[in-house]
Write a protein that binds this DNA or RNA. Structure first.
Lengths: 243, 243
DNA sequence: GGGCAAATTTGACGAGGATCAAATTCGGGC
DNA sequence: GCCCGAATTTGATCCTCGTCAAATTTGCCC
């Protein structure tokens, strides 16, 4: 059976937000047309899972907008977040067997998806594409190593501050669905998800958030809206040794 | 000027210990010969640095024997270990600019090194090589993500135990330079290096090692020799919730 | 608008490491 | 074999989170 067609439409590069930054930007017009024909644009709502751990056939896709969470479930049933993806990242393994992790949308997202077979074939046909994927994967590996090692040496406060700073940077400023007042940022994650992402406990996240507010660095409204009052202080709090 | 020739000899695949597991195993005889001609076999002594952070031209190499440490130095002058490599791993970036990290031999090692330019050219000439590198890099990225996330949730004891278990598995049993009695394992790392690798403090590593000895799991001799008395207990200690 | 269940916040407390400070022990060089 | 400096071990204490337990707050459905 085909995928649920309701969330999918033909891939359409013309209005793709990342068309000159995504992996496919290395293709010429003709090759791009063929490549696009093998993929489909797919919308996934916040919280929706794109791929389940253990799926027989992994998804290959370019994230064109939104944000994804890569996670897995441990033997003990806990969720462990192993990474995140932002446009124009490519996700998926064209080679491996069963999918080793779960991919979930943190916020409403758009993907340009390909079946593993189709993607793999495109890789064979387009050397430039393969080269670009190699380049990106190596860069990602390096980034992942650096980030993870840095994260490991950071305390709870800096982690939360860094996440907040990151979100505010990644989010097309102020244009978050219908907030009358600009500057407010709607967190795409619950406290529990933030905790899993940062490898902390819910209570600790809550406390650190409270501390940032008490320090006048951010302001909160409801459970999920925050406004950064002092970005300098926030980034300062994201590095060790801060007050 | 050429590299210090004393530690280098022509690449010689015939007696390469990893010839059917390394990245080059995908090449046919002719291609392999050309590839080998562009590289050199290099011996690096324990502690010697193969590449410095910031080097203009990064090294590309296959590790044929030994073990390497990938690290970087933070702004604050501390060392941060971001990964390790064991045969038949490939290290280096054929693309990036200045080297982003330092590569140091943990124990005496043999590398099959290529200049970035030469390696890059081989990649262009041999599609199979490029494909294999992509495959491995993706696998390595996944492994890195999984490992790091697991490590983050482990306490000090399990980390030390896991490291010990890992070393004993990676080391061609007993054949460690001239120990009369078999079973003894010479740690290639000082306490400080172990601490950096596991993101712990020297004192903590020392205490955990002491605890393992007191528990009868390992035996120590001098500063660097250990013998695993109870591998089952050691691997048990490497997972959470242990006694 | 009131009532609820779930999410979040707050508080008390404890355990695991980090830190600071010695005391030892190794390994070499002479 | 003796001496010395560096690495390691040990001890005491502090601090940061994780845990367990409420007390609140929010969002939402009637």
């Amino acid at each position: 059976m085909a995928q649920q067609a309701k969330n999918e439409t033909p891939a359409q590069c013309a209005d793709c937000l990342v068309r000159n930054r995504a992996i496919c930007h290395v293709l010429d017009a003709g090759a791009l047309a063929r490549f696009a024909a093998s993929g489909r644009r797919r919308h996934v709502a916040a919280g929706e899972t794109v791929q389940w751990q253990g799926d027989d056939d992994g998804v290959c896709a370019t994230l064109t907008s939104g944000a994804l969470k890569l996670s897995l479930v441990t033997e003990t049933g806990e969720e462990r977040v192993v990474g995140t993806a932002y446009p124009p990242d490519f996700i998926g393994s064209p080679f491996a067997g069963a999918a080793s992790m779960e991919v979930t949308a943190l916020i409403d997202s758009e993907l340009c998806v390909f079946s593993r077979a189709a993607f793999s074939e495109s890789l064979d046909r387009n050397r430039a594409l393969e080269q670009e994927l190699l380049r990106r994967t190596m860069a990602e590996l390096e980034r992942s190593r650096l980030d993870d090692s840095r994260l490991a040496s950071l305390g709870a406060g800096p982690r939360v501050a860094a996440l907040l700073a990151d979100f505010s940077k990644r989010t097309p400023a102020g244009c978050d669905a219908g907030d009358p007042d600009a500057g407010w940022l709607r967190l795409p994650l619950s406290r529990g998800e933030i905790a899993a992402l940062l490898d902390l406990r819910i209570e600790t996240v809550s406390r650190e958030l409270g501390a940032l507010e008490r320090a006048g660095v951010v302001q909160r409204r409801g459970r999920r809206d925050v406004r950064i009052l002092d970005m300098a202080a926030l980034t300062a709090a994201a590095v060790p040794q801060a007050a």
